[in-house]
Every structure is written in C-alpha cells, then in structure tokens.
Design a protein around this nucleic acid. Structure first.
Length: 504
RNA sequence: GCGUCGGUGGUAGAGUGGUCAAUUACAACAGACUGUAAAUCUGUCGCCUUCGGGCUACGAAGGUUCGAAUCCUUCCCGACGCA
C-alpha cells in the first residue's frame, strides 16, 4: 500500500492524498461506507458505488460468526464475496475492523444507553459504568490476553485474541485491516482508561507480530504457487480462484504498485506479479478524552515495530465528548507520522468531517448515513430532517433541490443521459468531479419527500433504501467537496458556508 | 315481531362493583441514533393545568349503591336465529 500526499491545507494538519490499495486508489480524504456483515444494509453494491463510495468496511466479529472467515476466504475475499466492484468491473477497495469496537458495544455498553460520544462535557460528572453494575449481563468480557465474546446469534463463546483477530482478517482478505484494540466507554475513569490503553498497546504489538508472520507465510505460499503455475495450462490456472484474489493487484519487486487493474483481471490470475497480496495493517490510537493518554498512545503506536516493520497507517478510536473530539484528534495527529494515512474510526457527522479533515484525518467511516436513513432521518444542506414528520406527508418536492443523488435527480436524467459513458463516469470514482454522475434536477426529482414519507409510514423496504442512498451520497460527496476545496484553496470558505447553512 | 349475543378511547381488543382516564397492540405525534446485537429504540397519546391537580368519559336516558365501564330498567344501534 502506498500513500501519497498531494496537497496540504495551510496552517493546519489537513491534506489531500491518494491511498493506493491492491484493489485500486482511494482519493483522500474519503468516507468509507460501513458494511459490517459484508453488505451495506439495504443497498446493493451498485447503489453504494453510484453514491460515490470508494471503499467499504466489514467487521471481523460479525463475519467470523457468520458466515465464518473461512467461507469468505474460500469465496475469494470479502470484496469478491460481496461483489464490491469498481465501475471498471474490478474488485474495489475494502477494509475490515478488528472487533475492537465490539469489546465496547457488546461489553460495558451492552443493554445500556451508552454511546461512544458522550453528551456529558465535564468528566468529573461521569459515572463509571464498570463500578456501577459490574454484574450486568454483557456479551464481551476482557480476559487475560484477549476478549471472550458470547455470540449474539447462538450464545456460543468465542475467545478473540489479537492473533485471532488478525488471522480472521487475513482470511477475510480486505486491503486494509486493523489491530485488535479495546474501545473504551466514555464513562470509564482515568485509571481504567490508562489500564485499557496499556492493554491496547500490548495487543497492537501482538497484532503487528501476527500480521508479519502471516505475510511471510503468504509470501512463501504465493511463490510456491507461481512456480507451480509455470508448467500449468490456462485451464488449470482458472481453478485457483481463491489464490487469484489474494494475488490481485500486487506490489512489484521495486516497490511500485500495479495500479488500475483491468476488468478481466479475474481471468488473468498471474499477471506477471511475483510478490504476495499484502493487506495493510493500521494500528489504533486510544486514550479517551485525556490529553496525556492520547499523546502517549500516538507516540507508542507510531513507534511500535516488529523486526523493523511498522504499522502502515493509523486508526484513531475510542470515545470522547463531542466537543473534545477536535482537540483529541489534533493531539494525536500532531504526533503520528505525517506520511502515513489516518482513519478516524466511527465518526461521520458533517461537522465532524470538517473538523477531522482540518486536523489531518484521511479516512472516516460511520454507520450514520445508513442507520439514520433506515430510521427515517435524512441529511440536507439545511440540517437533518425526520422524513416521517407530518409536514412532509404532502411535500411533493425533492429531498434536496440541487442534489445529484439517484433519489433526488430527475428520472429522465438517470435513464438517458448521465449513465452513458462520459468523462466523469469513465473514471472509477469521478476523480475530477465532486458530484457523482446523476444529473442535477430543476424541480422534478425521481422521488418526492411525500413519497419517501409514505414509504416509511407504510414500512416499505424501499424507504430505507432510498433514504440510505441519499444519505450516503450526501456524506460521501461532502467529503469529496471538502477534498476539492483544499485543492482549490477555499476550504475555510466552504466550511463556513456549509456549516452556516447546515447547523442553522 | 320474538329470542340470543353484543355496543369500551383514531382502530382492534382487554376489563365485568372500588386499586380505571381505563391492560395491550396498532395507528398518530415528537425525539434519539457516530469503528451496526439497530428496517431499531424512547417519550407522548380524552380536555384543561400554576404539573399539586381539576373536569368530562366505556351507545343513550334513568335507576340501585357510600361507590358503576362493570348490576337493573327502558330506548337506540349491530350481528345471528326463529317467525
């Protein structure tokens, strides 16, 4: 994996870059769609891609339980399994989370009304949940060197260690994977945050060690495979579909990457590559809202290495109060090595995206666009609306007048003009444009607010789909526009203009 | 015409003498959601309220009772059966 910074935002940590993965380039900053169980809920991959999404994120815990990481491996990796493809037909970039978030969501937060973003701004007012009801039922318990999970599906017990998480993630076959960490609750006190941080650091080192070990094994395996294939006929080569995926888009011996894979790549498994498919491993910085812990974590995680091999990038995880987020991100990103990508885990409200990008974040993922969409909340430039509200029942206008998403654009535009090959659509992700290729409307949108409200009231499946398409488009393209604003030197003007309208 | 059963809040449907402004579900209305146990969850849901309470309510009108959605009488309405 290669990360190239193309432009920096003046007087801040912000930057624009290109992250090259074995399955294509990601223009950063970028928003990653969350597809926990190898599906972005309610959307098919074409809808996800047409919303402008470049990369999707699956989850180790969920895919390990169902269908099992071996199945995903045998299917050819998560991208192939879920048919996540670029517009040229090749498999598109993927990531997997390590299961570290489930330590929190199935642990202390289980059955409780605790979010990773607390509304309590004064830490001294927080009540540590751990001491409050340590006997409360939870599905994740932290053990000596890992976490035991009680499956929410069948109650079976599974012990996940850093090594196990990395093994699963190698099987899942994403381009970017994460170290196993402990996402702490914002209600934990400083003492616990410190203990958890030490644990996360130990786990980070073990994650990296396991990752290196598996990479060496895989390299050896692929060399054997390539040697064997020298004498093979084309027919027999096509039987090695699984290996083929894991060999796809490899680095060349001189370290440069083979970019933009051809559409028929699947039928051309060897393709002159001689090195192994190498997922990039990101270490995760924790430390809650505490400055000393955040800085300590950033330093340690960036310095951890195994035989001289460091993390390929970094995730910024954990919990904080909303208003502490910007300072926490800044503390961390001032310390992390500039030349490596940074991913702010699980954050994605519009104002957070501006904050993160300004403070040096390259990647975001968040369930909000799709979860809010399914639950009837829709993003607009004037703020979020709850589409089930009575006032929308007879509102026949579009969700947004000048939105280019499938839902808001004019029907004739979608069926005739914009889907034909154009300069914009020919590019994998429209690198030179902010909006995805749906034609803008002048009044007549494909679907009205009234219709979408009707679908929600009628509990129709299409409701969540249409709302998710719009929301995902909104967020993904907001990040693209922010990227463009940095390139065009008007980030701060754009931020001011957007947030003034959005936050009212 | 006679007989039987039944009429409860927007709907369905509990409740058969006090703990009933009335269980529950749905609908309605509002809200929440940040590395997805989530197409989920929460609150409100007769009228008024200084949030203490006040007022009107279980088809209608009378009655019994300290007290009635609940018992009695008549009437109205519905379903079914017999003429």
């Amino acid at each position: 994996m290669e990360f190239k910074i193309e432009k920096k935002l003046k007087n801040s940590l912000g930057r624009v870059g290109v992250l090259s993965t074995p399955h294509g380039d990601i223009l950063t900053p970028a928003f990653v769609a969350v597809g926990t169980k190898a599906t972005i809920k309610s959307l098919n991959p074409e809808q996800v891609r047409d919303a402008g999404t470049q990369v999707v994120l699956g989850n180790t815990y969920h895919l390990y339980l169902q269908p099992g990481d071996e199945i995903v491996h045998d299917a050819g990796g998560i991208g192939k399994f879920m048919n996540w493809r670029r517009s040229d037909g090749g498999i598109a970039p993927t990531m997997t989370d390590s299961g570290g978030f489930q330590v929190f969501s199935l642990g202390v937060a289980y059955g409780k009304d605790i979010s990773k973003i607390t509304k309590i701004t004064d830490p001294s007012l927080l009540i540590p949940e751990r001491f409050d009801d340590s006997d409360a039922p939870r599905l994740a318990k932290i053990g000596q060197d890992g976490v035991s999970f009680k499956s929410h599906l069948d109650g079976s017990i599974h012990y996940i260690t850093p090594e196990k998480s990395i093994q699963i993630q190698h099987n899942l076959g994403a381009d970017i994977i994460f170290a196993f960490d402990e996402c702490t609750s914002p209600t934990e006190d400083l003492k616990y945050q410190g203990e958890a941080l030490e644990r996360t650091h130990r786990w980070a080192e073990r994650s990296l060690a396991e990752h290196q070990k598996l990479l060496i094994q895989k390299q050896k395996h692929s060399q054997d495979l390539l040697l064997r294939n020298v004498d093979r006929s084309p027919a027999s080569i096509s039987d090695t579909k699984t290996e083929e995926y894991f060999l796809e888009g490899l680095s060349q011996s001189d370290g440069s990457r083979v970019s933009a894979l051809p559409a028929d790549r699947d039928s051309d498994p060897i393709n002159n590559d001689s090195s192994v498919f190498t997922p990039a491993l990101f270490g995760i910085v924790q430390g809650g809202r505490e400055e000393s812990l955040r800085k300590q974590s950033a330093k340690i995680i960036s310095e951890i290495n195994v035989d001289g091999k460091y993390f390929d990038g970094f995730g910024i995880g954990g919990s904080f109060a909303k208003e502490d987020m910007s300072t926490a991100v800044r503390w961390v990103n001032e310390i992390l090595p500039e030349e490596k990508p940074r991913h702010l885990l699980g954050i994605g409200e519009p104002e957070d995206l501006f904050m993160g990008i300004e403070n040096g974040v390259d990647l975001f993922d968040c369930v909000l666009p799709t979860r809010l969409g399914r639950n009837g909340t829709i993003y607009t430039k004037k703020g979020k609306i709850i589409i089930t509200n009575a006032k929308f029942r007879n509102d026949f206008g579009p969700i947004e007048d000048d939105c280019g998403c499938y839902v808001c654009s004019a029907p004739e535009a979608f069926f005739s003009g914009s889907l034909s090959v154009s300069a914009d659509t020919a590019l994998p992700f429209g690198s030179s444009v902010c909006e995805t290729p749906h034609k803008k409307t002048s009044g007549a949108s494909r679907y009205s607010r009234a219709y979408i409200a009707h679908l929600f009231h009628g509990k129709e499946m299409l409701a969540g789909t249409l709302a998710s398409i719009h929301n995902l488009h909104f967020i993904v393209n907001l990040v693209k526009k922010i990227r463009q604003s940095i390139i065009e030197d008007n980030f701060f003007e754009f931020k001011e203009e957007f947030l003034t309208g959005y936050l009212k």
